[in-house]
């Protein structure tokens, strides 16, 4: 007998141990998220996947599905909160989509479109953040980092290298590199590492790849992110080499 829970009134089957977001994705239902990735342990930091679980709010990526559970996701109030969270991510960093090579392949941008975000709404922080271009093949563009820790998890859990970490607290939190100088060139990171391609924004990019994928052939050019499930199982977005 398959166990199920209700998500926005729909019966969703699940296997024991699955989180709400995993079960929903398996059933083809999209719950907005940025720090979640099916290959890596849940992080629960972006809060975009917050759902209403029987009257209390919780992250769909960290809460396990349970028999008979009633979950609400697509409500006006939750999507308004998600939109505000996304707006805050935009103003906390320096996200210039018009000149960003990740545009069209960027989950942050795609989620913003999905949620109907028309403006940043909040005043921009315009933080001063460093670019690390020292590595021959990988560029670290901290202006676009949303601190999702996917690169931290990928480097640690998939690559076994521990190249990345988050340093500082609160608004001073930043992506740091595990080397004496703090520069990427002095790590053993490789462009073929999982950490080099897992970033949902353009914070970690392959050098000299740039705008090789034409407009019209990018992931989200024609389709909303909600229709792109299962999302991050995809590797090597787009085509072409730098």
């Amino acid at each position: 007998m398959t166990k199920t829970f209700r998500l926005d009134g729909r019966e969703i089957p699940f296997k024991e141990g699955q989180t709400i977001i995993e079960a929903a994705a398996a059933a083809g239902v999209y719950i907005p998220h940025l720090c979640h990735h099916p290959e890596f342990k849940p992080h629960g930091s972006c809060k975009l996947c917050t759902v209403n679980i029987g009257g209390r709010l919780g992250a769909a990526c960290t809460n396990h599905a349970a028999e008979g559970m009633a979950v609400e996701s697509e409500t006006e109030a939750l999507n308004a909160d998600r939109r505000a969270l996304t707006q805050m991510l935009f103003v906390e960093g320096n996200h210039f989509c018009p000149s960003c090579e990740k545009s069209g392949n960027c989950q942050l941008q795609a989620v913003a479109y999905h949620l109907g975000m028309m403006t940043p709404h909040f005043p921009h922080f315009y933080p001063a953040r460093d670019i690390d271009a020292s590595h021959p093949d990988v560029l670290l563009e901290r202006n676009r980092c949303i601190l999702c820790e996917l690169c931290v998890r990928a480097s640690r859990d998939a690559d076994g290298k521990n190249v990345f970490g988050i340093g500082g607290r609160g608004i001073r939190a930043r992506l740091i590199v595990n080397s004496a100088s703090g520069r990427l060139a002095e790590t053993n990171m490789s462009v073929t590492d999982r950490a080099a391609e897992v970033c949902p924004t353009g914070a970690i990019i392959r050098k000299r790849h740039g705008f090789t994928v034409p407009i019209g052939q990018r992931l989200y050019d024609h389709h909303d992110i909600a229709t792109q499930l299962p999302l991050p199982a995809r590797r090597g977005e787009g085509r072409g080499e730098g």
């Binding site: 000149s99 670019i131 271009a133 790849h209 705008f211």
Partner: peptide, 14 residues
């Protein structure tokens, strides 16, 4: 200044 060179044709056209 400081931007990766491959970004320039798309950036400066603005």
């Amino acid at each position: 200044q400081g931007r990766p060179y491959w970004e320039v044709p798309v950036l400066v056209q603005r």
